[in-house]
Design a protein around this nucleic acid. Structure first.
Length: 308
DNA sequence: TAGGCGTGGCA
DNA sequence: TTGCCAAGCCT
């Protein structure tokens, strides 16, 4: 079996320059093994897809599921969310993490109401212009909700391509132009197949071609995988970027916001002071939350989630 | 572009 | 136990 080459060989020299040999096995595998997730059901609609994409940014599926259901039940349309204060979005976000996403989702809902008549736009550029929507999310909504043909490059897809095509255990830390070019090259020509391919490659990365212990025995393209053919070499070079957390401002921000999420009553400074004993860092974290719009300072040293 | 930004499960 | 990791975005 021949590996799919990512190198810049002339098309005539490559047996499968567009990777078409990968499409059928990956999509067939997806048809047989895809998870039944609520945002994949037809009734989810574009808004359901968009909400799920915001929540799934850096947060695992299992933690998203209950919050997603509550969110859609409470705010079934963008205008429903836009009608409430941003602080309610932050409160409903719960412990999903990165609460700025809640603020941005609220802002996206407001923009959808104002600029798009309350309907999630279909156009990639219009999606990209919404707060909190980057290259990945715009492509994902356009592809999953509207069946369009866009390269969808998330961490799962990048890992699948790095292994199957690039022969490496992991993709680069930051997405490269070469990865974008490869994703465009591998994208099936017709819209419905391209949309299927996007979902299928993501699912393959999430369920089989996982970061730590890939289950190659269940992989539909194991025989084509460049990384396997190279003997599954371990990652070498600089260490992959890790994230520290304990003792950082992020941890303090999380504790402060948890207090404010727990009550609709404005909270005195003295109460917030109890979550962290180092005053300089504590003040810096609270200032950061205020400047991010996640916390609203009131007169008299009181704080609450933002009403505006 | 490198770093900041939450949270919790798992090996 | 302690890193590593999870459907990124923004500055």
């Amino acid at each position: 079996m021949t590996a799919i080459s990512a190198s810049a060989v002339p098309a005539a020299a490559s047996p499968d320059p567009d990777g078409a040999v990968l499409h059928r096995p990956v999509i067939d595998w997806f048809d047989a093994h895809a998870r039944d997730l609520p945002w994949r059901r037809p009734e989810a609609g574009a808004w359901g897809v968009m909400v799920s994409e915001f929540m799934l940014q850096q947060t695992p599926v299992n933690r998203v599921l209950p919050v997603y259901e509550q969110w859609l039940a409470r705010w079934p349309r963008p205008a429903d969310l836009a009608a409430e204060p941003p602080g309610e979005a932050v409160r409903a976000w719960g412990r999903l993490g990165y609460p700025r996403r809640a603020l941005r989702l609220h802002g996206a809902a407001a923009a959808i109401r104002e600029r798009h008549g309350g309907d999630v736009p279909r156009d990639h550029a219009q999606l990209l212009a919404l707060p909190g929507v980057g290259e990945y999310t715009a492509a994902a909504v356009a592809s999953f909700a509207y069946g369009q043909r866009h390269p969808v490059l998330d961490t799962n897809v990048r890992r699948v391509f790095a292994r199957a095509v690039g022969g490496a255990q992991y993709p680069p830390n930051a997405t490269t132009a070469a990865e974008r070019k490869l994703a465009r090259t591998l994208l099936p020509d017709d819209e419905p197949t391209a949309a299927r391919w996007a979902a299928a490659t993501m699912e393959l990365g999430a369920l089989v071609c996982t970061a730590r212990t890939p289950d190659c025995a269940r992989c539909p393209i194991a025989s084509l995988c460049a990384w396997r053919q190279a003997g599954s070499p371990e990652h070498d070079g600089p260490p992959r970027r890790g994230q520290t957390y304990a003792g950082t401002d992020r941890q303090v921000r999380g504790k402060l916001l948890a207090v404010l999420r727990g009550t609709v009553t404005p909270v005195p400074q003295a109460t917030l002071d109890q979550v962290w004993d180092e005053p300089v860092q504590r003040a810096r974290a609270l200032d950061g939350l205020v400047s991010d719009g996640l916390v609203e300072p009131l007169s008299g040293g009181l704080y609450r989630l933002p009403l505006t």
